[in-house]
Design a protein around this nucleic acid. Structure first.
Lengths: 298, 298
DNA sequence: CGATTAATATGCAAAAGCTGCATTTTAGGA
DNA sequence: TCCTAAAATGCAGCTTTTGCATATTAATCG
């Protein structure tokens, strides 16, 4: 039984030639040639353009290349997952988690949820859009996202339902030894900051709600930019500039005094950690995960 | 060449028994039984639970039923689409359109875009969430959604880019003959309205930005509720109550006098019609559609 | 608990499909 | 026009799939 004909097509797209694709699929050229013909026959369409000599994928194929690759990938992943579950008997629960969360509260959440019944937790890090997509397409069972306090909650009756796991602060931090001298120079002077790119969630949050206010007090100097909040933390710990990080991420360094929380002078943001799941799902095999998310406290 | 093994699995899920599934797939029971065994062999997992007599889909299968069905469906649709394109030589461009738009500006947009090169336009009506999902998963090439004027635009650098096709108003309308008498009774009195469900986009818009203000003037009487803006239009035309509809939807009736626009006394909402597409797509076969969307004027 | 019934599995032979090898056909390049 | 590399095809052997008839096995009912 051959179930991997999609991979044949992807191989065609990857290599752009029948011969190369055959090599990639570990089969003789002649056999692969006939496979392609058989597929064309069944699908009722031309897959390769034979007018040219290293023959190329047909226009139709190329037009839908993205879709085909995506479906092939999703199918592979799903089967792998099912296979694993079937062998170990434990359900794999996938949580789509916004990048910033993966590195802050992610570990604690995994710890808190692991070992609940026969489940394995997998955190899948993605940006906000992607988390939404993963959830809606059933590729993730839950999503964890940040929302600024005050932003509108989910519309009632949407396809997903949500719950506030905890609230957290986005706080400005700086190396403990130099924090005082830094603050002295702020008013009317200059402030070195570690920024996030504008297209990241944290970049948007800081850029819209923090920096505009600060810019009226002093001139801001973007010394570094990174999309990774742990990197921002390291930079501020090294004295490069002030970084805004989720409080959970800085907990250890704040406790040890390596970092100092500058919220009172530079301003912080309140965020909610939102857990979401689809409403419709018929098979609620992971109801207790949801229940546990509700009762988590940080 | 058999490419439809996913349908075998779906048939198993549909019928819950091997015999019924075999019937559904038009194949003898014995042959299907062996197909299932072959699949189980290749996939390395149990598909049916044989301990019971009308044997049932295995736990693993049921746990991933949604995903399997979705992939099977998407695959079928994709192949059908490719087949059609391959036969007719014309590209099918799918536009995910918010329900409210499908019935208001949808027809005009289709007309405006049809016959652009060798393309066929298909409008796929969905709610806001679903439009987003369809776009992100490549199941739609574009999406058309409403956004209230003043709501935040898309974050820069997101996975999608957007453009404002036009602006439109959400206006209160009522049957032309009785509009005057209706308005007289409003102040301090009662107003019959046709409402949208709170979980629909229009329901959210009207419920949050219009009704709260009106409620201070008079008491509102929700005479009817429908998710379909054309139905709301008909109801208001029949004198049931005031309905808020996209202005494009009511254009004809407003021109003929059957409906009257009550914006000045009851308040209206400005909306933008937003077109979106993914950024990344490598194959820009429909660049001219996007260009035409930009230049559309209503 | 045994007989009955319905669902699933299996032995078997025919049919269909797939594969590799060797060879031919075809497109692109010199 | 000839040469080269890519794709197609004839062919024989091998594997898979299928339907039929039949055997097993689980549920049901007296």
């Amino acid at each position: 039984m051959r179930i991997d004909w999609l991979d044949d097509i992807v191989a065609l797209l990857d290599t752009g030639s029948v011969l190369e694709a055959a090599r990639m699929r570990n089969i003789s050229q002649s056999a692969f040639s006939r496979r392609v013909q058989g597929l064309e026959d069944v699908l009722g369409m031309t897959l390769v353009e034979r007018r040219t000599k290293p023959s190329r994928p047909s226009a139709t194929l190329r037009a839908h290349e993205d879709q085909l690759r995506r479906l092939a990938l999703e199918l592979r992943q799903l089967l792998k997952e099912m296979h694993h579950e079937s062998r170990t008997g434990s359900k794999l629960v996938i949580i789509a988690s916004q990048h910033a969360i993966t590195t802050s509260l992610g570990p604690e959440i995994i710890n808190a949820l692991s070992g609940l019944g026969k489940t394995h937790i997998r955190l899948r890090s993605a940006n906000l859009d992607e988390c939404q997509g993963l959830l809606l397409t059933g590729q993730a069972d839950f999503s964890l996202t940040y929302r600024l306090l005050g932003e509108p909650p989910l519309a009632p009756g949407s396809l997903t339902e949500e719950l506030v796991v905890t609230t957290e602060k986005l706080i400005p931090v700086f190396r403990g030894t130099d924090a005082d001298s830094l603050l002295e120079g702020v008013d009317g002077g200059e402030l070195n900051i570690v920024a996030y790119p504008a297209d990241a969630f944290l970049g948007l949050a800081v850029g819209q709600h923090i920096l505009p206010n600060l810019e009226r007090l002093c001139s801001l100097n973007e010394v570094a930019e990174t999309a990774l909040s742990p990197a921002a933390l390291q930079l501020s710990r090294a004295g490069v500039g002030v970084a805004w990080i989720p409080s959970a991420l800085g907990r250890a360094d704040l406790a040890s005094g390596d970092l100092v929380d500058l919220s009172h002078s530079l301003g912080s943001l309140d965020m909610q950690l939102i857990a979401s799941r689809r409403r419709d799902t018929a098979n609620r095999l992971d109801e207790n995960i949801w229940a546990n998310l509700q009762s988590l406290a940080f």
